[in-house]
Design a protein around this nucleic acid. Structure first.
Lengths: 208, 208
DNA sequence: TCAAAAATCTAACATTGTTAGCAATTAGAC
DNA sequence: GTCTAATTGCTAACAATGTTAGATTTTTGA
């Protein structure tokens, strides 16, 4: 624990720290807005800074590179997805499975630019090879929810982490193809197909 | 029908046309090799040309832009995938479903750089909004195979195009996450999970 | 042999991410 | 209040990118 022996930072120092943090957030938001309006390949350092009426190098006082900013947005995305999944998992017992899938879908299309940053789509390079902590947390929430749903049905998952990976892969595949316009019939049909296949897919994950 | 009235092109003209085509292919291959060795963000026009001991602008005598080259590689990828799926669909009746999924998986990991170009991964931007003809052909082959498999079992698909989209999305999700290193346990486990969920997923697509 | 066409290069352009170095502002100690 | 040190932000520049213009060489077909 941090001891009082450490010199307390002055009020102005705290204020500056807070302002720095706010600036960081504003840079992240600016990148998101540009990406959502014109796609990720319109997101340049000069445009991010310009949107806040700063010059380009300002970014390097808050991120070591453009890639680091993208990685941070990826984590923001996984954190928001985790929160949505958590809320969906709290819902009524019946229909909770569908609610989880709907939450995943709703997140992806409420913030496509975040979803793309998280999954290396639309020209966004993967900043980190390893799976970020926030992603693992989202997976954990998903796993606990699936186990709960199985339990309510008086059953259990044969391989809980495997069930999460399998269903997650399916949801990601549906969203990914739908977002890329690769599924005839558009988003509505894609969503229906996803929700239709969800229940049998889950059932197959139960121990027999 | 091409009439004899059209002036026959001279032998050297034919040769030049053939050489042009070969050069085009060599440029495509060079891009693939660089991408497979160092990833797509190492693929620059100067490097593609340099690998063939040409200077950069040579590319513009064969493609109108870098993007066009990527789109062409995307089509090459879908054509090769379609061929693999076709071969898998010709196999023995029992296990044909698994063979299709294995063919999809094998293609993706035999040529990850192609798979990435096809699906806008690893920093490759989507060149075309609309689904390319070659992709639709691969879907068609897949659909016919699934219908055949259902028929062998004395059943039929409730919604053939829907079944294709659904299962395709699942396969893509599995490959996509596995390729990005997002599935714990690596490729072997990812592949097993995919094949395990495949059969119940297909069964759910049959008319009841 | 010669003019037209094709192939290929060098040089340049604007834009990208990034860094160096300077100017202005602010902080905190005396 | 004043002075030094730190912070903040800018301009200018860098190399690398995709792309184009223009010149030059090579090839073609008569």
């Amino acid at each position: 624990m941090t001891s009082k022996a450490q010199p307390e930072q002055s009020a102005s120092k705290k204020r500056r720290e807070r302002e720095r943090q706010e600036m960081r957030t504003r840079l992240l938001d600016a990148a998101r807005v540009i990406a959502s309006e014109e796609g990720w390949n319109a997101v340049t350092i000069r445009r991010i800074a310009g949107r806040l009426e700063y010059s380009a190098p300002i970014l390097y006082q808050h991120f070591s590179s453009k890639e680091e900013l993208l990685v941070e947005l990826m984590m923001v995305g996984f954190a928001e997805l985790a929160e949505r999944l958590r809320l969906a998992a709290e819902g009524l017992p019946e229909g909770r499975l569908v609610a989880m899938a709907e939450a995943y879908w709703a997140f992806a299309f409420a913030a496509p630019e975040l979803y793309q940053a998280m999954n290396g789509m639309d020209g966004v390079p993967f900043g980190t090879a390893e799976t970020p902590r926030e992603a693992k947390n989202a997976f954990r929430i998903f796993r606990i929810a699936l186990q709960g749903i199985a339990e309510e049905r008086g059953a259990e998952l044969a391989d809980p982490p495997g069930a999460v990976d399998t269903i997650w892969a399916f949801l990601h595949g549906c969203v990914s193809l739908a977002m890329a316009g690769r599924i005839a019939g558009g988003k509505e049909r894609s969503r229906t197909l996803m929700l239709t296949a969800l229940e049998p897919m889950f059932t197959a994950q139960l121990r027999d």
